[in-house]
Design a protein around this nucleic acid. Structure first.
Lengths: 193, 193
DNA sequence: CCCGTTTGTCTACAATTGTAGAATAAGAAT
DNA sequence: ATTCTTATTCTACAATTGTAGACAAACGGG
């Protein structure tokens, strides 16, 4: 019972997490409606039926992907605790994570790309409210902290949308430092109140 | 040949624009993938085939919807020309147009809700770049006007996403004046440079 | 060595999708 | 009134979707 995993080709937990990882990529790339179960399963090297075997349904898989993402490190709030110049640190983080390359901020990409599906939207809303929104609001002080937290999320989401999804040129090939400078100004105002 | 339209039930141009209007609503509600041709046609009181007859394909219809929207009044730039306090006027306009009720800013809602489809995304990108982006950048002066214009679009898009699509509570039931105040601060910095 | 459980695939189905072609009906022209 | 044009619908098809059930194969314990 304690065989330490001797290169077995039939590993349930490995398959499960392979599907989860593939789904995360696929959802980030194409959104809920755009990613097919066969495509997701193919990316994990298995058949489409495995999705239903391990997760019950595509919708449940989507929910678990979001749970995994929001269970991970809180990227926004981590930047907010760096006391004096939290605005600049946050700006740098956001600009780099919304750059052309790999999207690490898929907690936003996935919900935004899935906005054509009401059910997917609902699932994402719950997670965002319970995690990002609550965390950011908790890191702020003063009056209107909740509104300001929401605005920070909105700015991040908008930047993400415009840089990685719509890909408007002025933001895609913008100067990194200039972008950081402008964003730091925005965040500074929202953090201070 | 000059019958002035005596309540005829078979009017080509009327049907065409009925489909266009229904498509605009449907796309704003469900995005490109979420809105079916039968649903769109039904909203116009006709059969699904009329879509292909009048527009060739669903994709072409989508493009024409966006053309109609971006051919209309430039809402953002109109606010930007009000010289001294353009920031506040813009903030008010944006907050009101992203309120819970009717979405008048569908030039953003539709592309954002259609982000699961690569082709729809591409079509929207062209329009946004050629219209909004160019207009806003033209209304700004000083260095980095292009980046700042892009950021204004990003902020508007993010607010729209979070208030009308994801519907996070902190922004949905936020105090209007407080929201305007914060946004005016953001826009002020972006307009001035 | 063999049996039972787990892990996986195969075939298939019902629904929905966008779209095509033929058939119909309504209006205008003669 | 009859023909011609044009707007509209009907039927249908091929593809894709998520999902279900039966079957096959690999593993582990006896």
């Amino acid at each position: 019972m304690l065989t330490p995993a001797p290169t077995r080709s039939r590993d349930a937990t490995a398959t499960r997490s392979a599907i989860l990882a593939s789904a995360r990529e696929a959802f980030a790339r194409s959104g809920y409606d755009g990613a097919g179960v066969r495509e997701i399963a193919g990316g994990a090297g298995v058949t489409a039926m495995m999705v239903n075997r391990y997760f019950g349904s595509k919708e449940a898989l989507y929910a678990e992907v979001l749970d995994q993402i929001f269970g991970g490190p809180r990227i926004l709030t981590e930047a907010l605790i760096h006391a004096p110049d939290a605005a600049r640190i946050l700006a740098e983080a956001v600009v780099d994570m919304t750059a052309a390359g790999a999207p690490q901020l898929d907690g936003f990409v996935i919900p935004l790309r899935s906005a054509s599906n009401p059910r997917a939207l609902e699932i994402a809303r719950d997670r965002i409210e319970a995690n990002h929104q609550a965390d950011v609001a908790g890191a702020l002080t003063g009056p209107g902290a909740r509104e300001r937290a929401g605005l920070i999320l909105a700015v991040v989401a908008g930047l993400q949308s415009m840089r990685q999804t719509v890909e408007i040129s002025s933001l895609v090939d913008a100067d990194r430092d200039e972008l950081i400078r402008q964003l730091a100004g925005i965040f500074s105002g929202l953090i201070a109140g």
